[in-house]
Design a binder for these strands. Sequence first.
DNA 1: GCCTGTGAATGTGTTCACAGCG
DNA 2: CGCTGTGAACACATTCACAGGC
Lengths: 207, 207
Amino acid sequence: MRYRKVPDETVRRLPLYLRGLRFFSEQSPDHVSSKILAEFLGINPWQVRKDLSYFGEMGTPGVGYKVKTLTNQNQRILRLDSVHNAVLVGVGNLGSAVLAYQGFRTYGIEIVVAYDSSPAKIGSKINGVEVKDISEMWQLNELDIDLGIISVPGGAAQSIADELISAGIKGILNLAPDYIRVPKKIKVISIDIAMDFARLPYYIPAS
Amino acid sequence: MRYRKVPDETVRRLPLYLRGLRFFSEQSPDHVSSKILAEFLGINPWQVRKDLSYFGEMGTPGVGYKVKTLTNQNQRILRLDSVHNAVLVGVGNLGSAVLAYQGFRTYGIEIVVAYDSSPAKIGSKINGVEVKDISEMWQLNELDIDLGIISVPGGAAQSIADELISAGIKGILNLAPDYIRVPKKIKVISIDIAMDFARLPYYIPAS
DNA sequence: GCCTGTGAATGTGTTCACAGCG
DNA sequence: CGCTGTGAACACATTCACAGGC
């Protein structure tokens, strides 16, 4: 199966494997089997094997996958082997929470600067990150930042995205409830927590 | 195509259509076409038509879909036509942000109580929602709550999920980076922002 | 002429079953 | 004998193309 196109769903699961590998590396073993890893993550063993096989032969028959090696390979594939700097725009409730959240660091991603339009917030520091005036976003060009997080209210995301892109950002995590139109070169991943929450009742049998 | 099984991906998009419909209802028109709606949401017209057709004939050829009617139908399908009460567990950064976030209300979901283990937080009110001691979660049984949000640190989600389920919760939005094992009757939707963010560099061409 | 609804065709992802290595 | 890697079978989702209603 070498050299076949990697399914997007496989890419989506790569960070999940990283999460599992991190867990097992804190435990004991040198090796994990697809079965053990899958069980921990709540998926099937053959899915794990198939996913990993897209990138070459990663494991050893009869033994499993070497935790450390697989972690490194996985990080390299996701380009998480080098540090990525990120900018966050919109220091509201969600934006502040994201700033305070340490979870990105474990993947080698660091938020180095934030922007907001509210005078009350500009100049302050949240979790060690300086909040600057949104009208100074052009300065981003000077910095080595390739990722952006948009956590502004609905309706405002498109113009922020445009600014981020013209400031050289290559990938955007969009937390606003807006569809944003971008050039093909730019990758957008959108999360709308309210939308995900809203489909939960569908699955609940009538009370 | 009547009476065929509704694809999960279609259900996932229903709240998206609701988002679009809300936008257009604030504008002018009685009707929207699949083309207009699709363009606003960043998807294809035929996807919109196919999705909606699973639930019967919703539109009028030559005219489009009636905004108000489609909104009502959509809400009924998602069971968002009645109010749902929710509980949130874990009033950290993310949990507080979610409490303060108004976005759920527009879907008819209301967080009515929160729990945390930190004495500093217990007894306080965040955005009008009282924070109670996590050891009192059994009291949930008394209330009419069917949804739960888990926003505790990684590693703690499973035990919280167990408690929520034994307190009668039917659906869980899991924001913690944990896989949680639940009975078949219970629906879990998991969001791991860090994980989604972490696959962004994969799509960015080498700098 | 415009727009919906939908079978058919296509594309994509998952699951299976097993050959082959350690 | 356990576990990986993978073609093949299957399941699911998207896209197309167009018949038919307004």
